[in-house]
């Protein structure tokens, strides 16, 4: 079985997003970028499936600007067999990304698509579900456990109330949560090896898909900050403040 893993290049989660002064967006110039953490979990799971003999090929795909290939190289260094790099300088919305991914799925015919549950830049949490809908495939979202069993997969989902276990028919689109696994560290020899692995680069425009954005971003601003309050000397003062000043207990 072939596993397709969708990955995104995002601002490093340890870096605080800075809003541009003209309100047009978040300033990413010279910012440290990385593979979206949830996407790393998705890729790790695909690699483990291959190592367990349940998958025979792991393909990473991304849609993005010129430097997206660095993120895909990281995926290859982690252990993916090959990469597909769909290049565009436009910032596509999840609906358009899902349409591009559907095109790739139709060509690659994977038995399983894995993706992160959300990208930590747009925080949309949409692409995997949209892709599943467009394909008419089953979906399981926000999973923390995956067991493949022939033509079905048993997945445990992290839902608000706790854990939900569902069975989905294959092929399926599965979006993953952080507790699914611990992504492996990439070693230097892996980085060297990744340079020789195949990467197809495809210009988005050459695919002839409708990827027009439906939303216009009118403004991006920083939220009103919270200012630091006071430091209390001891527990007694804390209790007093909460009772008599804030009146919350």
């Amino acid at each position: 079985m072939k596993v397709l893993v969708c990955v995104k290049r995002v601002l490093d989660p340890q870096v605080k997003a800075r809003v541009k002064s003209d309100g047009s967006g978040v300033d990413l110039s010279n910012a440290k970028m990385t593979m979206n953490p949830f996407c790393e979990n998705a890729l790790e799971e695909a690699l483990r499936l291959r190592e367990a003999g349940l998958a025979d090929e792991v393909v990473v795909v991304s849609v993005g600007g010129g430097k997206t290939q660095e993120t895909l190289r990281h995926g290859l260094a982690m252990g993916a067999d090959r990469a597909i790099n769909i290049t565009t300088e436009e910032a596509l919305e999840p609906l358009a990304i899902a349409r591009v991914l559907k095109h790739i799925v139709d060509q690659e015919l994977p038995g399983l698509v894995l993706a992160g549950k959300q990208a930590i830049d747009g925080d949309s949490n949409q692409t995997a579900q949209m892709l599943a809908g467009m394909l008419g495939w089953s979906q399981s979202t926000f999973i923390s456990e995956l067991k493949l069993d022939g033509d079905t997969a048993t997945t445990t989902r992290e839902v608000d109330a706790g854990l939900e276990t569902i069975s989905v028919k294959m092929p399926a689109v599965v979006s993953v949560d952080l507790r699914l696994n611990e992504p492996r560290y990439v070693k230097l020899p892996d980085v060297m090896k990744a340079k020789r692995k195949p990467m197809d680069t495809i210009e988005l425009d050459s695919l002839g898909l409708d990827t027009a954005n439906r939303l216009t971003v009118l403004e991006v601003v920083e939220p009103e900050g919270r200012s630091a309050g006071i430091i209390v000397a001891n527990v007694a003062e804390l209790v007093d403040k909460l009772r008599n000043e804030a009146k919350v207990i």
Binding site: L11, K16, A17, V19, V26, I120, D121, G122, D123, V217, E219, V220, V221, E222, P223
Partner: peptide
Amino acid sequence: IYAGNALA
């Protein structure tokens, strides 16, 4: 967006 560090 961005973990609430920006509002779009």
